[in-house]
Write a protein that binds this DNA or RNA. Structure first.
Lengths: 201, 201
DNA sequence: TCTGTTTTGTTGCTTAAGCAACACGGGAGC
DNA sequence: GCTCCCGTGTTGCTTAAGCAACAAAACAGA
């Protein structure tokens, strides 16, 4: 989205990272709705006007922040710049699950608005990644439909799993199932629509 | 020396602190003589030209850095903005001793040049502080001579004490004497020339 | 000694950040 | 209704930081 980080004026890199850092620290303290642009710029020790030279408003900041964090998660597992395999698909699902869990534990009180903004960003990233993977295969099959299905399914699973710790009140506290078992079970349901893209394997 | 930190352009505060921080980190790695301005600006991620807008050269940076650190030590013990008493004098001596010990443990290899630059700065600060203390008493006695004597004596003691851990080779490793005992012993020799300024006590 | 390399200060011009002030809108409380 | 307050975007002008290029000095090694 924004020009690729490096080859960028050092001042820009610095203030962006100051904004990002302050914002993420604030998210750990209070809900997204209650965070004002002033809060962010105060903590970052930059001028409020400077903020608006980088972001439209706090919503765009949230989008950017979530994207960056998720992208880091993906790069950490070197899932960017690789291709479609069952193992990589599995890693992707695990990544989304762990990302959401971390997000929920790091952020003070996620409201539905916050959740839905996050969802939009993450799904876009998953979709892009899957598209890159599927396009690398020489097949001329259209990727839109399978990628869409897989994207929604993956996010849905991860969301379900990441929320399944505090069970509904009254009932016995149902522990979140172990991630690996959960993914083992779910993986085939996702892979079935993508197998036509499986390459050499 | 420099305008008092606050009420200052945020950009200036930021780059100064970046420079300071990088410099102190570098001092922990290599000797002062081997640190170049480029090293500092690289680590601080600022432009080299910007450095020269704040400091003449690395020597002025060292002066400033040492002053800041020592001033922090003084303010931590609230020795600024107080007056002359035996207790405060004792605290001052302890402060200088502990400061030098910390400096020696934090810095990679102190050369004699480094040491002498440090000495100049610290003594200037001690002298200024003592002068403020002594001037607060209503006496019209001149402060220059007593303050000078006390300054040199205090620094000399602290330097001696802070270097007395690794004893000369061959001899039994003489442990650095406990600071409080050392100061107890030395304090009267310093105080004797300042007692005429003692106030109500 | 000559030579290439590195570091040092310095300069003019470009660009980003700071600042103060403004109009706007949405509550909160009377 | 009415203020008062607070957060939001936006603007023109000021100031600091970035950059590339330069000459001069320091230095290391044939």
């Amino acid at each position: 989205m924004l020009p690729n980080e490096s080859n960028l004026d050092p001042r820009v890199r610095r203030t962006r990272s100051l904004i990002l850092q302050s914002f993420e620290e604030l998210l750990a303290e209070k809900s997204f709705v209650s965070i004002s642009v002033q809060d962010v710029t105060d903590k970052a020790q930059i001028n409020r006007a400077t903020f608006y030279k980088h972001f439209e408003d706090k919503y765009e900041l949230l989008d950017y922040s979530i994207s960056q964090m998720f992208r880091a998660e993906i790069e950490k597992r070197t899932l960017d710049a690789c291709h479609y395999t069952l193992d990589n698909l599995r890693s992707l699902i695990v990544a989304v699950c762990e990302f959401l869990v971390r997000l929920h534990s790091d952020c003070a009180q996620p409201h539905q608005q916050f959740e839905s903004l996050v969802e939009t960003q993450i799904k876009a990233q998953i979709y892009d990644l899957l598209t890159v993977w599927l396009r690398q295969t020489k097949t001329r099959i259209s990727t839109e439909i399978p990628a869409t299905v897989a994207t929604w399914a993956i996010y849905g699973l991860a969301s379900y799993w990441s929320h399944s710790t505090p069970a509904r009140a009254g009932a016995a506290r149902e522990k979140r199932p172990a991630l690996s078992k959960f993914v083992d079970e779910a993986l085939p349901l996702i892979a079935v629509n993508l197998e036509q893209f499986a390459g050499s394997k």
